[in-house]
Design a protein around this nucleic acid. Structure first.
Length: 261
DNA sequence: GTTGAGCGTT
C-alpha cells in the first residue's frame, strides 16, 4: 500500500503526525520519505488513497519520532516544491481513531475522565454548504458518519463544483428566455422528479420515442439492467428472457478456463 | 491524459 509495507498504523505512540497537503497526485510516500527523513526520524508515511480508483488524494501523513524534528521539517519542507507542486506541511489535528493528538503529537488514549470532547474545528467549506442543502432537499438521514460523508463528497466533488460554477455563471451568449423563471422551476422539478416532467410539460417538442434520453444509442439503461443483474446474479437460474445468449454466455471463450481465477 | 480543498490506514 502507500505505507512502507506495513498493514495498518504502526506504533503511533509518542509520534508526531504531520499533514502534507497540496502534493502532486502521483507523489508517493517513497518520494516524500527522503525529503522528510532528511530532517528527522520518520516513523511512517501514509498517503490516503481513493476507495474506488485508488489514486492519491493529494495529501500525505508523515509521522516523526520527535517534535523538534517534525517542527523542523514543517519549517523546511513547508512550501517545498515537489513534482512541480508546492506542498504544505503542517501538524495533523484529527486522528483516525482514539488517538489523542496534541500539537501533532500522538499520545496514548486515556481510559476515561479528562476525555473532553475535542470539538473539531468549525472548519466550514463551501462544499459542506452545498452538501447540507442537498441533504435538506432530499430529506435524507441527517446522522451519518463523517468518514462516509467525506467519500461521498469527494465522489461528486468535481461535479458539484462545475455545477455550481455554471449556475452562477451567466451565459452571455445565451440570452435568458422569458420563461427563464419557469424553466428554473422546471429544472429543479426535473431533478427531483424527472417522471412527471413528461406529462407536466406538454409543450415539449420531443420525439415520442425518446422521452428523455440525451444519448439513446449509448450504454443501455442501467435501470433495466441493474435490477435484472441483481436478480440474475443472486438467484435466477432460469432466465428465459435472454435474447442474446443462452445459459453458456458466461464462458464464451474457451481460453478462459473455469478454474483460471 | 483530467481534478486541487483538505486531515489517515489493518
Amino acid at each position: 500500500m502507500s505505507h512502507f509495507g506495513r498493514s495498518g498504523p504502526p506504533d503511533i505512540t509518542d509520534t508526531y503526525s504531520l499533514l502534507v497537503l497540496n502534493i502532486s497526485f502521483r507523489t508517493t510516500a517513497d518520494d516524500l520519505f527522503p525529503l522528510f527523513d532528511k530532517y528527522g526520524k520518520v516513523v511512517d508515511i501514509f498517503i490516503p488513497r481513493d476507495r474506488r480508483t485508488g489514486e492519491s488524494r493529494g495529501f500525505a501523513f508523515v509521522r516523526y519520532k520527535y517534535a523538534d524534528e517534525a517542527q523542523k521539517a514543517v519549517e523546511k519542507l513547508d512550501g517545498r516544491v515537489v513534482d512541480g507542486r508546492e506542498m504544505t506541511v503542517q501538524f495533523a489535528k484529527y486522528g483516525p481513531n482514539a488517538e489523542r493528538i496534541h500539537k501533532g503529537r500522538v499520545i496514548e488514549p486515556v481510559p476515561r475522565s479528562r476525555n473532553r470532547s475535542r470539538s473539531r474545528s468549525p472548519r466550514r467549506r463551501h462544499r459542506d454548504d452545498y452538501r447540507d442543502r442537498d441533504y435538506r432537499r432530499r430529506s435524507r438521514s441527517r446522522s451519518r458518519s463523517r468518514s462516509r460523508d467525506r467519500y461521498d463528497r469527494d465522489r461528486y466533488r468535481g461535479r458539484d463544483k462545475e455545477d455550481r460554477r455554471r449556475s452562477r455563471t451567466r451565459s452571455p451568449s445565451r440570452s435568458p428566455s422569458p420563461d427563464y423563471q419557469k424553466g428554473r422551476k422546471g429544472r429543479y422539478d426535473d431533478e427531483r422528479r424527472s417522471r412527471s416532467l413528461s406529462q407536466d410539460s406538454p409543450p415539449r417538442r420531443h420525439s415520442p420515442s425518446s422521452r428523455r434520453s440525451p444519448s439513446p444509442q449509448k450504454s443501455p439503461s442501467p435501470r433495466g439492467e441493474s435490477p435484472d443483474r441483481r436478480s440474475g446474479d443472486g438467484q435466477s437460474p432460469a432466465r428465459s428472457t435472454s435474447p442474446r445468449r443462452p445459459a453458456d454466455s458466461r464462458s464464451p471463450s474457451p481460453r478462459n478456463s473455469d478454474a483460471d481465477e
